[in-house]
Design a protein around this nucleic acid. Sequence first.
DNA 1: CACTCTACCTGTGCGC
DNA 2: TGCGCACAGGTAGAGT
Length: 278
Amino acid sequence: MPELPEVEQVRRSLCDGPLPLPGRTVQDLRVLRPAVVDGNPDELRQLLCGAVCRSIERHGKYLFFCFQPSHATHPHWLAVHLRMTGRLMLLPEHQAPNRHVRLLLLFDQGLTLHFEDPRGFGRAWLVEDPAVVTARLGPDALQVDAAGFLRRLTAVRRQLKPLLLDQSVVAGIGNIYADEILFRAGLHPRRTSHSLSEAEATGLYRTIHQVLSQAVAMQGANIDGVFKAGRYPVAVYGRVGLPCSRCGTKVVKERVGQRGTSFCPACQPLVSSTAGEL
DNA sequence: CACTCTACCTGTGCGC
DNA sequence: TGCGCACAGGTAGAGT
């Protein structure tokens, strides 16, 4: 389930890997499953064939591929959202797409970008400007400054778990990192934004930044047997019934805001405490 | 405004 | 072995 750190890892691997995408020209585009494209697949193909990839940007969980078509003055952007099970892989052209590949972008020098997605929730679509998409989102969770975050936090009266998941507040946090952040901040998922002390609110901000930047540095999360994108060790997500790494209390799972939520009932008390960060 | 539900989709893992 | 089924989750959009 790619969230900010995993999406950033994808971006980096495509930009800074041994075979960087920027600078390469699209030779062909194949839509293997039309639902993956939001818009007309033929139009997408016409616009991107012959276009040169200039850069790949990220905002929250969205990727934006900047393409300069040969006969246009301004670039076109391919927006991509991987949702839960989407993956992007740059493979040699002789590699046959597996049955879950939805979209193929054939580049020069025999490189093909595979957009694979077993669940088929992921989407790719063209935009004139990434701002069309990012206007609906809050600031990127790694870019937001303390004052901006605290302003957004105190502007509402909401439970912390759904608040962190709301992409219009800050963009990039999903179910896994929301649980990890709240655990490390020592905050119960049902605590409300307006109930936080100043120290708790600042601690939450610092924890968001700390957890996400550490996860980016470790190339994403590592979840036992499920999701091994990177090496960032999760402390509570998917660890129901196992002892909390900090105090040994069994990790519990409840539904908070319709979402499965794992936390340590001892380290994350529902009542305000002066414990501070973990 | 805050919350809840539903739809989308399919692989996984459980109970029987 | 195999069937049925709940479950997982990001987002949009509708409803309470």
